[in-house]
Computed example of a mutant assay.
Amino acid sequence: MLSESERLLAALNIAAQIVGRDGEAFLPIFMRLESEVQGLELQASALERAKGMSRGRAA
């Protein structure tokens, strides 16, 4: 079973192919998926920083 991040990256790759093949009409979908991937990356980074701080280490 794929993680949410893996599913989004796969969808982003497919969306990129569609935009490359069919043009700008599908660009908003690509941009939304890209934003979702970035959001997950930011969330994971913040979680790691918070865990580090809770253990007494600066991030």
Score class of each variant (00 low, 15 high):
A50C: 06
D22H: 12
A16C: 08
E24Q: 12
M53R: 15
L33D: 09
D22I: 10
A16N: 12
L47M: 10
F30N: 08
V37H: 13
A10V: 00
A44T: 14
I29N: 11
M53N: 14
R49K: 10
E41V: 11
Q38P: 06
E48P: 08
Q43L: 14
S35C: 12
E34H: 10
V37M: 12
R21I: 09
G20F: 01
A15F: 01
A10C: 01
E48H: 07
A46K: 04
A46L: 08
L9F: 00
A16F: 03
L8Q: 06
A44Q: 13
L47H: 06
G20P: 07
A50F: 07
A44W: 02
A46I: 07
K51R: 13
A44N: 13
I18A: 09
M31N: 15
E4F: 01
D22P: 13
E6K: 01
A15V: 00
P28V: 00
F30A: 07
E4T: 10
K51S: 11
F30H: 11
S54F: 04
L8W: 02
G23A: 09
V37D: 15
E6L: 02
I14V: 05
R57V: 09
A44P: 06
E34V: 05
G23C: 09
A25N: 09
R32V: 03
V37K: 13
E36L: 13
L33K: 01
E48T: 11
A15Y: 00
G56I: 02
A15I: 00
